[in-house]
Simulated scan of single mutants.
Amino acid sequence: MTFPGRLDGKAAIVTGAGSTPGPGVGTGKATAIVLAQAGASVLLVDIHPERAAETLEVIEKDGGTAAVFAGDMTSSTDAEGAVRAAADRFGSVDILVNNIGVAIAGTVADTSEADWDRSLALSLRTAFLVSKHAVPVMAAQGGGSIVNIGSIAGFRGTGNAGYSAAKGGMHGLTVDMAYSHGRQGIRVNAVAPGHITTPLMYSVLGETPETEYRQRLAAESTMLGTEGTGWDVAHAAAFLASDAARWITGVVLPVDGGVTGVTPLIMADRLRAVPAPSA
């Protein structure tokens, strides 16, 4: 489901707009496509321009408008360049979706300092830097909407210490930015995806029967009993970015099929019914 015309005349930046190779679609690629389908012109930011080019091809084939910006959003210079490129090419920066992230498995005991730093740099510093340069542009033009892609890992244990810390920081950053810039007409919200199927998930766990089994468990653990995808995150982000959400700010919205609303004990019978992978 798309919302044709809802974002007509809007200019958007989506970071991490390419998809990691693998099954499914990444949240950045899906969000960029949905924003374009709703009428926005989209700057597709990615450190891997060939991945962003694949997103561009889909958007243009669908009649949308987009452009690729290759850059490293952990660099303030590149982040500023992306914001400037969107303003120069499209005339404004109305929407920013901070989507870059990396999941590196490990507790605080076995996560290396390098992996910790990388987790926070990619999953949190990037949002800080692009927002730092986008906010003054939005304020000068009278407002805008920022959507940060967080995770339920920001308020649930996952065994991924760096990722959880970064996403928890993303949620805190969201609320603080909403407070700090609301009177400048800038709304700031976050989407917190649950256990969705994306290429990033496969890049961490691999394409194995065990991974497929875990995905079935993830689906059964939700109130809906169904699997989530990058498209579910994209539609939520597009709504929060749109004027339909004009009085919503400072919200961290779980898009998780209800998984954070139930306890493992309540779901135990349903999970036991999921057949394990054959040896």
Results as ranks from 00 to 15, higher is better:
Val137Ile: 15
Thr174Met: 08
Ala109Tyr: 01
Glu80Ala: 14
Ala165His: 07
Ala87Ile: 05
Gly144Arg: 07
Ser131Glu: 08
Ser112Trp: 01
Val102Trp: 00
His171Ala: 15
Leu120Gly: 03
Ala109Arg: 06
Val102Phe: 00
Ser92Pro: 08
Asp115Thr: 00
Gly142Glu: 01
Ser180Pro: 00
Ala79Cys: 14
Lys132Met: 07
Pro136Ala: 09
Ala153Phe: 01
Met138Pro: 05
Thr158Asp: 00
Ser119Asn: 08
Gly144Ile: 12
Gly101Pro: 00
Leu122Lys: 05
Gly172Asn: 15
Leu129Glu: 13
Val130Trp: 13
Glu113Tyr: 03
Arg156Asn: 08
Val137His: 13
Ala103Asp: 10
Gly159Glu: 00
Ala139Arg: 15
Tyr179Gly: 14
Val68Asp: 03
Leu120Met: 12
Gly185Val: 04
Ser92Asn: 10
Ala153Arg: 01
Asp78Gly: 08
Ala134Cys: 14
Lys132Leu: 11
Asp88Glu: 15
Gly81His: 09
Thr111Gln: 15
Leu129Gly: 11
Gly106Lys: 05
Ile152His: 02
Ser131Leu: 04
Asn160Gly: 13
Arg118Gln: 09
Asp115Cys: 03
Val68Ile: 12
Arg89Lys: 15
Val102Asn: 00
Gly172Thr: 15
Gly172Ser: 15
Ala134Tyr: 11
Ala139His: 02
Ala66Asn: 06
Gly169Cys: 10
Leu124Ser: 03
Pro136Gln: 14
Ser75Ala: 07
Ala165Lys: 06
Asn98Trp: 03
Ile186Arg: 08
Ala161Lys: 02
Ser112Leu: 03
Phe90Val: 12
Val68Lys: 03
Thr107Ala: 07
Met73Cys: 12
Lys132Ala: 08
Asn99Arg: 04
Gly142Gln: 06
Asp115Val: 03
Ser75Gln: 12
Thr158His: 00
Asp117Trp: 04
Gly106Val: 13
Gly106Pro: 05
Ile100Phe: 01
Gly71Gln: 08
Trp116Tyr: 02
Leu124Met: 07
Ala134Arg: 13
Ser145Thr: 09
Ile186Lys: 05
Ala139Gly: 12
Asp115Lys: 03
Val130Cys: 11
Val175Lys: 15
Asn98Ala: 15
Gly81Leu: 14
Arg84Val: 10
Lys167Asp: 11
Gln141Val: 00
Ala66Gly: 09
Arg118Thr: 09
Ala86Phe: 09
Ile152Thr: 13
Asn160Ile: 11
His181Pro: 02
Ala70Phe: 06
Ala85Tyr: 13
Ser119Glu: 02
Ser76Glu: 14
